[in-house]
Amino acid sequence: MLSVLLTLWYTFLHLFHRKVTVSYPDEMPYLAPRYRGRIVLTRDPDGEERCVSCYLCAVACPVDCISLQKAEEAGRWYPEFFRINFSRCIFCGFCEEACPTYAIQLTPDFEMSEYNRQNLVYEKQDLLISGTGKYPDYNFYRVSGLAIPGKDKGEAELEREAIDTRSLLP
């Protein structure tokens, strides 16, 4: 009985406590840089698309809301289309974890409500940003073995010059 009364009393005292509510949007909350919000596709330091359309984000996605198609130009892989259905996205960040090129990144932005669900389907032009995002220095093609324009075989990091098949020298 006493405990019930004490409960009532303690609850009543909360009248004078500080409110925990953050009055968004009058008061903007602090979002950490690694906050998992709107997904973007970034570019490498040379300004080229980082996405090599390897499909790992799509397969990692637990709600299967990423779809893309690989295309190729002069040895570079890129997505012909890249679509995220944000009406399905649960912002788990698995796609970012799966991405081998740091192309797909989650950003501290969650303000993407729409009145029409169809507008939540983002295509590549909606996703692709001009910058490098959280990882300013990484460039996949500088470490991969593929030849692309401006980087021939053997010119990537930690690569020896391409071998001469006609040589028997050690």
Partner: peptide
């Protein structure tokens, strides 16, 4: 089992 993009593949046409 790991077929991907189920909810995005037709989304350009209809969500």
């Amino acid at each position: 089992r790991r077929f991907s993009g189920r909810t995005a593949i037709n989304a350009a046409h209809s969500v």
